[in-house]
């Protein structure tokens, strides 16, 4: 037992939680924006994968990691536009549209990766993001190495949370987005374009999902593999429910998941507990379901989530 505690109580472990949680924070906040506007974006898993592939490829050929991030965000926005066309303009089932978008994005990511890189014996890789310590702050004992000696994207993800909370709760844009997610008829009556707000929420979500995917292939693994996302997108859907559609609670959920994931990685590596490593891989998914069962009864989704809005119908 003390061995396990020894593994856990290290600054490096807490720093790892933040690194693992970063893509989840980005994608979960993205999904939250989309859902607050009334659209469940189940394209998330595929958009993250396509973002991961696009970002990696752009960085590989341009030599610029940030250009890779931008490319991933652009392709994420493009796929969110498709989601918008299907669910907002055409009012189709958000469930099936999302699964369709994920299947399409997954197929495109595999197709173009094979087309561009072929089947090399060694997968191509990029020199990924390096940690960017913040001067002075990084020197603070304990907190410094934990919070201020990370990738720039980790800082940005952490800053995204208060920014998202402010945008959602203290700006007229946020008010409009929440209005079309709760009562689109009333919002429409007040002169807010329901379609426009939903498209904007979706595209913001797509950009953040693309960036989340790119983080995985350019900061965490520094290469693209077909299994790079392996369910992380679906976990983010659960985290939004767990976070009750609030940015700060979503952050808490992502950190909790990061903790479990970091823990299983440590336990796997330490060999303290001798059980097959697949059980550790399974653990975050099991806990996500348990967490959802605990909160789902009290979680109140946006009232108009999943409901298409047609202006002419009363």
């Amino acid at each position: 037992m003390s061995e396990i505690l020894g593994e856990i109580l290290q600054v490096g472990f807490f720093a790892a939680i933040l690194r693992i949680a970063t893509p989840l924070i980005l994608a979960t906040i993205g999904e939250m924006f989309s859902e607050r506007g009334g659209v469940l974006n189940l394209g998330i898993e595929g958009i993250m994968l396509l973002g991961s592939m696009t970002g990696f490829t752009a960085a590989y050929y341009s030599g610029s990691l940030w250009l890779g991030i931008l490319a991933a965000m652009a392709v994420g926005a493009l796929m969110a536009l498709l989601m918008g066309l299907l669910t907002v303009t055409l009012g189709l089932s958000q469930h099936v549209s999302g699964i369709g978008t994920t299947l399409l994005c997954t197929g495109l990511a595999f197709f173009f990766y094979r087309l561009i890189f072929g089947q090399p014996s060694l997968p191509p890789n990029v020199e990924g993001f390096q940690v960017a310590p913040i001067p002075l702050l990084a020197e603070i004992p304990l907190i410094g190495p934990l919070l201020f000696n990370q990738f720039t994207l980790v800082y940005l993800a952490l800053l995204l949370v208060p920014a998202a909370a402010f945008l959602l709760n203290h700006t007229s844009w946020g008010l409009s987005l929440r209005a079309v997610g709760e009562n689109p008829r009333a919002a429409d009556g007040a002169g807010v374009s329901v379609a426009k707000m939903r498209y904007q929420g979706l595209m913001l979500s797509g950009m953040l999902m693309g960036a989340a995917g790119a983080y995985l292939s350019m900061a965490q693994f520094n290469a693209f593999t077909f299994g790079v996302i392996s369910g992380r997108g679906w976990v983010c859907i659960a985290l939004v429910v767990f976070g009750q559609w609030s940015p700060w609670k979503c952050l808490a959920g992502a950190l909790l998941f990061g903790f479990v994931d970091a823990l299983q990685l440590r336990l796997q590596a330490s060999g303290v507990i001798e059980i097959p490593y697949q059980f550790f891989l399974m653990l975050p998914f099991v806990l996500t379901i348990v967490a959802m069962a605990l909160v789902s009864r009290s979680a109140i989704p946006p009232a108009a989530l999943l409901v298409p809005f047609r202006k002419e119908e009363r």
Partner: peptide, 23 residues
Amino acid sequence: YKVDDVVTTLLLNFIMFYLMMAL
């Protein structure tokens, strides 16, 4: 418990796959 079926069925796919591989 009113847990969304889309999310749970998706997550259970991964759990079953890892369970199979562990065995």
